[in-house]
Design a protein around this nucleic acid. Sequence first.
DNA 1: CTGCCGATCGCCT
DNA 2: GGCGATCGGCAGC
Length: 220
Amino acid sequence: MTEDGPAHPCVGGERLSATFYDRPVLQVAQDLLGCVIEHDRVTVRLVEVEAYDGERDPGSHAYRGRTPRTAVMFGPPGGLYVYFTYGMHYCANLVCGPPGRASAVLLRAGAVVAGEDLARARRTAATHRTIAARDLARGPARLATCLAFGRAQNGVLTTAPQSPVTVRRGAGPIGTVAVGPRVGVSGPGGDGAEFPWRYWLEGDRHVSAYRPGGFRRTRT
DNA sequence: CTGCCGATCGCCT
DNA sequence: GGCGATCGGCAGC
């Protein structure tokens, strides 16, 4: 491999660099669509993501400042932020620039393009059900399960040469990018009017089915 | 397909 | 003590 000049943007196989992540989060989020993420023999092509801005976005875990849980988001771009939620699920984000701003992109859904049998085994072990290929990584916690993401992967720097988690450009065209409200975000801006920061590949069957406007019912 | 609901526990107030 | 950046089962259309 040579160090001369940047890789051609359409060539697959090159790991995304710190430069890729060290840009505004909305830009990084859109550019991640069509990219592939690999860990422990399973590869997923990203078809749906959401952007979170640690400074101006009340929906971000980092909005209220740095805590032990959110520390990774304040670290270098390209870091993997894995968090545990609802008492049973893990979700994964990629940290973006500028450094220290605590912005990140939530990986919401993808298509398993390699290691399908292993991905299915992981999902089956978690659910004790048979899973259709389309549903393997259709949702942030499902995607994390396919890739075997857990506490051990929190803080992994995906741009490091020996990183166990790699993110690369996809090979083919990505088609049309759709934009809309984020899923499951409540509170100020939760309706998506202020932060339409969910991006997905239009028409892709692997995009999660959860309604962007899914209203949370206040308990009566 | 849609809507409703419970599971389950770490995090923050 | 309250509430999630969720998921799967079930009922109903």
